[in-house]
Design a protein around this nucleic acid. Sequence first.
DNA 1: TAAAGTGCACTCAGAAGGAG
DNA 2: CTCCTTCTGAGTGCACTTTA
Length: 238
Amino acid sequence: MSETAEATMTDLRTAVNDILSTIDREREREIISRRFGLHDRKETLEQIGELLGITRERVRQLEKAILIRLKIAAEDGLPHVQQLEKQFIRHLHEMGRVAKVSDLAQRVSKDNSERNRAHVAFVAELAPNLAVIDENDHYHHSVAIKDHVDEKKARSHVDEIVKTVKKHGEPLSIEQLHDQLDHEHPDHVRALASISKNLAHLKDKWGLTKWPTVNPKNIRDKIYVILQDNGKPMHFSE
DNA sequence: TAAAGTGCACTCAGAAGGAG
DNA sequence: CTCCTTCTGAGTGCACTTTA
């Protein structure tokens, strides 16, 4: 198992380098590699602009154009993308069809480094059958199988789960959530819930991150959870 | 005409300060 | 200490203009 994981890690690195080498202009390679953090930390438009002697906006325009070109190339068979996409999809099927980039990266190559995550995110961005969910306040940076959930659908499904939990007012199990929602498999519900920043779980009971019952922050919360776990029900005044 | 730059509006994270 | 509010600067995207 670790052999394949290590092999994948090398494959991933080689793939990323091979994809970068298809970009003719040095400047454009720099933009992509620095924006995605493929070799080092991610950089801002402004930082890259300063380095290259152009404005941040020009960097953004170039980045957009290069990505469009790469995506078209990927559809026509960019080196490695197809195989890696297949591999990612296989993992994603087992993970519930959608997963955080960090979880997928960990699973693909048993490596939780920032660079490995950047590589996975980069390949996923180009892969025609994968949908990337960008990070914001509500969602973790995630990848989904496009056939099942595109970016919009993933976001709305997650919102639906959050709404259901909120409405219920207390933590729900995945089975309960699955019963209330219209998704074909509980694993998919769990996967969707896991990409939400508004949800947390404890012993597979899912609630809002604000709730101490699923996301104990201080010692009082932890005591409460332990007491409740030992069959001494208590009630918050809130 | 493509490449590059500018202006403006927006979001967001983090610092600072006050109230309980 | 914790929570809440306000402020500020960084980062970004879009529409538009200028330049070569």
